[in-house]
């Protein structure tokens, strides 16, 4: 079979001769990314070890290779760091729990409505996500239609609020990143031939066993892609925390934002950014390795 693989490999390029064409195609895009993505990240790395200039002017820093910035930044913001990862994990798990049955229903139970339903999953996200987040704030807020009835039924205490809480932040994040979870899940579920599921049933697997042994493993690439696409933006998010949270639900994104704009403390903001990025990349690498889906990237 090595022969077939070799043939398939070569089938893509007719002549197999080394050509300059791919490099010409890559050049503009990669140059752009190098200047406006790689360079800023390197610059950020440099900024992260600076210390305030002697002049004392606000926003003016010099390079002193002060690596203690990292230690200080982490110690100051470890709560927010922890919160970022806890909230992002919770939101990812919730989104998975909500999306999986939804994607499953669309892939296997929707018949000719399939394409329409896929559009409907994405449709809400054409309304600005800030507008939707604020809509949740008002729906769940003091004047909204939810809190009153819940209080009347004594399901929540008279002092309890639904907004300005960790609960609101996590549900907001869950809601906002839902299509990033649903679409890859749907894509991988839709690729499963329903006959393999029937075959499993034929081989004496009951519904749950079929799901556990056949459906879920086959949808794993979608699960991995979906959880990554949800977790990454969730961990770096600060908008949900700013709109739906309170001071004790601040995430690391909020800290970076305020260090940058309010306190003009670039080195700390840079050090925090770097730690966030590194933490996420390490988690992704471990996750992808463990789930055995390296080919996704």
């Amino acid at each position: 079979m090595a022969f077939l693989q070799a043939a398939a490999k070569r089938a893509n390029s007719f002549t197999g001769k080394p050509s300059r064409l791919p490099y010409l195609l890559l050049l503009p895009g990669l140059a752009f990314l190098s200047i406006f993505f790689i360079l800023p990240i390197l610059n950020l790395a440099a900024t992260s070890t600076q210390s305030p200039a002697a002049s004392g002017e606000i926003g003016s820093y010099v390079q002193t290779f002060q690596f203690s910035n990292y230690v200080n930044a982490f110690l100051e913001s470890r709560e927010q760091f922890a919160r970022s990862f806890i909230y992002a994990t919770l939101a990812t798990l919730l989104a998975l729990a909500i999306s999986y049955p939804l994607a499953y229903a669309i892939a296997f139970k929707s018949g000719r409505w399939k394409n329409l339903l896929v559009v409907l999953v994405v449709a809400p996200f054409f309304t600005s996500f800030l507008l939707r987040t604020i809509a949740w704030k008002q729906i769940l807020g003091e004047n909204g239609p939810v809190v009153g009835p819940l209080r009347a039924l004594h399901l929540i205490g008279p002092q309890t609020t639904l907004t300005a809480s960790a609960f609101a932040v996590v549900t907001g994040m869950t809601y906002n990143f839902l299509p990033f979870m649903t679409l890859p899940l749907y894509a991988s579920l839709d690729r499963i031939d329903p006959r393999t599921l029937e075959a499993a049933g034929d081989l004496y697997a009951n519904g749950f066993t079929t799901f556990r042994k056949v459906t879920f493993p086959l949808s794993l690439p979608g699960v991995v892609a979906g959880t990554l696409l949800t977790f990454i933006p969730a961990a770096g998010d600060y908008v949900n925390a700013a709109i739906l949270g309170n001071p004790s639900t601040k995430m690391v994104g909020n800290v970076i934002d305020s260090r940058f704009f309010r306190i003009v403390d670039y080195p700390t903001a840079a050090a925090l950014s770097f730690m966030l990025m590194a933490a996420i990349l390490i988690l992704i690498t471990v996750y992808i390795r463990r789930s055995g889906t390296e080919e996704l990237i």
Binding site: M1, F3, L4, A7, R10, A11, F14, T15, G16
Partner: peptide, 17 residues
């Protein structure tokens, strides 16, 4: 399958050298 017949054909067609 794998006897080289398709490769021969592709070389005649010019899809392989």
């Amino acid at each position: 399958s794998g006897c080289g017949k398709t490769t021969t054909l592709r070389m005649i067609a010019g899809l392989e050298e």
